[in-house]
């Protein structure tokens, strides 16, 4: 049996007395595109924070390519091949777009904390950064400070920073949130392109995007995964329909 790219084993998270994640088991295979859906407040973002090391786990283990990363800080997890984006745009606003991408590349290109090489002289590094910019369609904005990009451009840059280092496991937290239809379509194409051969874990509210991209879907409700299956089976799943899919927006608000 092959090792799962990402494996969660009884993961729990309490904030004080409140249980936010109540025992999540999940195995995501290498090369799989996996979506996590669920009503507002189900704990999707919290789960992302737990996996990526932003939050400490109350209980349970998390393995990345078979290696236990439960208690590692975010940067150690990132160095082991997991890269994530954020629901709220999280970039380096005063650095140029180019520099944002280059910062995403530095560690993975073995530059570490080096203070004796000049970044501008590293042709290979800068070529790679430009290639990522071409990929996300921001090459003509390379020298613009990232903070003045439009919202959709910043979302694109966010994905660019996330994929720049070439991590094997990519986690995207609501990559299309707040985008128009055409922007969403472009974003989906971008995500599809840049995650070829990689493992993708994404949280997404837009069901069109989810059913379009995902190989498998997990439904998270009240901190528990009530179903993990292919899109077709999830659509047909009674429990999921009751808990989430079939209900109206108003009811979803009520759950949240």
């Amino acid at each position: 049996m092959t090792v799962a790219a990402l494996e969660l084993d009884g993961v729990r998270k309490n904030f004080g007395l409140t249980e936010i994640i109540r025992g999540v088991d999940l195995a995501i295979e290498k090369g799989e595109r996996h979506a996590i859906i669920g009503p507002n407040g189900a704990g999707k973002s919290t789960l992302f924070h737990l996996i990526s090391g932003k939050y400490d786990k109350t209980e349970g283990r998390i393995r990345l390519n078979g290696e236990d990363v439960t208690d590692l800080p975010p940067y150690e997890i990132n160095r082991r091949g997991l890269s994530r984006s954020f629901q709220i745009t999280n970039i380096f606003p005063r650095l140029s777009v180019f520099e944002n991408i280059r910062c995403g590349l530095l560690w993975s290109q073995q530059y570490r904390y080096c203070f004796w090489k000049l970044v501008d002289n590293q042709r290979d590094l800068n070529d790679r950064a430009m290639a990522v910019l071409e990929e996300i369609g921001l090459a003509d904005r390379a020298e613009t400070p990232a903070g003045v990009l439009t919202y959709a451009e910043q979302r694109g840059l966010e994905i660019g920073i996330t994929i720049a280092g070439g991590a094997g496991v990519i986690m995207l937290d609501e990559p299309t949130a707040g985008m128009s239809h055409s922007e969403t379509e472009q974003a989906v194409e971008l995500i599809r392109r840049v995650t070829v051969g990689k493992t993708l874990v994404m949280v997404e509210h837009d069901m069109g995007v989810v059913f379009n991209l995902a190989d498998r879907i997990s439904v998270l409700v009240y901190g528990e995964i009530i179903a993990t299956d292919t899109p077709a089976n999830i659509r047909a799943n009674k429990a999921v329909q009751e808990a989430y899919l079939g209900v109206t927006d108003d009811a979803v608000e009520g759950v949240a």
Partner: peptide, 15 residues
């Protein structure tokens, strides 16, 4: 500079 701008993000690119 990156840490100055956004220390959280810097941790998620390996630093």
């Amino acid at each position: 500079n990156a840490v100055r701008d956004n220390d959280e993000r810097a941790e998620f690119v390996g630093y």
